[in-house]
């Protein structure tokens, strides 16, 4: 276990955290403003990946495909919000969990009908295909480095949006007291739709970024969704800051756990025992982390202000 490897794995953890953040940001915003638990957020991620692939195929350019896929996913998100989810805001979480679980089934089958059940082909754009030398002897895929850059940029943009703009002010106000914002004459319905669309676009962005490195197939959203929920619960639901911290923590813990838990364990217990326990424990690590965080802080690390 040398220093270069530790550094490389830290970079991997950061990159994974960035992916999680892009998903978590939309989910936590929607939760914060509309008080909606949206399991179908993973479906929007899948829709983003499929649309980007389809548009890239159509235009012949990954970047054009991405540019078209973002507003398209936003539109899909707005459509879902207006047709199905709008009536759910006032309901309890249970109804929301179930209705959005139904949406997952619907979207997975719809995609299967449109594109088939087998995974479809996606590739890294040639421009981002090479490697960067971050350290001597450690080539790092350019595409993964680009993911980190995009993620950090989105985090900064979101921060500016939420803290420096009028829309952001409304979002913050809506998160702490929805009724009051409505009473002050703000069109809260429009705000809801905007926020949901923004969240959908962010999920779509995560999906289109994921396309070239993951498998684009029906059901791809659920694999990441549960981990994203872990992120926002650890971070504190409704808090962008919480989503950033939660995503990086989960990304790091998961990656470093997978990489180093077994060697570290084998210094404590026998090697065969470490072989057995290591992978099992690494799979459970983020859930253990979440249970531990909630044990000490039942509302996550950064509970959103003004909510009980």
């Amino acid at each position: 276990m040398n220093a270069a490897l530790v550094l490389e794995q830290t970079l991997n953890g950061l990159q994974y955290g960035v992916m999680l953040f892009l998903m978590a940001a939309g989910l936590t915003l929607v939760f914060g403003i509309m008080n909606l638990v949206n399991l179908a957020h993973g479906s929007l991620y899948m829709v983003g990946a499929y649309l980007a692939t389809a548009f890239a195929h159509w235009t012949g350019s990954f970047f054009l495909g991405a540019v078209l896929a973002l507003p398209a996913t936003l539109l899909v998100g707005v459509g879902v919000e207006v047709i199905a989810l709008r009536t759910l805001y006032e309901r309890d979480h249970l109804d929301q969990v179930l209705a959005t679980f139904g949406l997952i089934l619907f979207f997975n089958e719809l995609i299967a009908i449109l594109w088939g059940r087998a995974a479809i082909y996606t590739s890294v754009p040639p421009l981002l295909g090479g490697h960067l030398r971050v350290l001597p002897g450690v080539p790092y895929p350019t595409y993964r480095a680009a993911i980190i850059v995009v993620g950090v940029a989105v985090a900064i943009l979101l921060w500016v949006l939420v803290t420096r703009t009028r829309l952001g002010m409304l979002i913050r106000a809506g998160a702490s007291n929805r009724t009051m914002v409505g009473a002050l004459g703000v069109n809260i319905r429009l705000l809801d739709t905007l926020v949901f669309g923004l969240g959908a676009a962010l999920a779509g962005l995560a999906g289109l970024i994921a396309g070239p490195i993951y498998s684009v197939q029906p059901g791809m959203g659920e694999e990441i969704l549960i981990q994203v929920f872990v992120v926002i619960v650890i971070g504190g639901i409704g808090s962008i800051r919480g989503a950033v911290v939660g995503a990086v923590v989960v990304g790091m813990v998961d990656t470093l756990g997978r990489a180093f838990l077994k060697p570290v364990l084998s210094t404590v217990v026998s090697a065969p025992a470490a072989d057995k326990a290591g992978p099992a424990l690494a799979s459970m690590l983020i859930y253990l982390l979440m249970a531990a965080v909630l044990f000490f802080r039942p509302e996550g690390l950064f509970p959103a202000r003004g909510r009980s």
Binding site: I226, V233, K276, A280, M284, Y287, L294, E299, G300
Partner: peptide, 26 residues
């Protein structure tokens, strides 16, 4: 000790841990 969506997620987390435990019971 938790409530609302935190309760939903923490119960889910425990079930996931048991699920992965089951997978590792060779």
């Amino acid at each position: 000790r938790t409530s609302g969506v935190y309760f939903i997620m923490i119960t889910l987390a425990f079930a996931q841990m048991l699920y992965y435990l089951g997978i590792s019971l060779e």
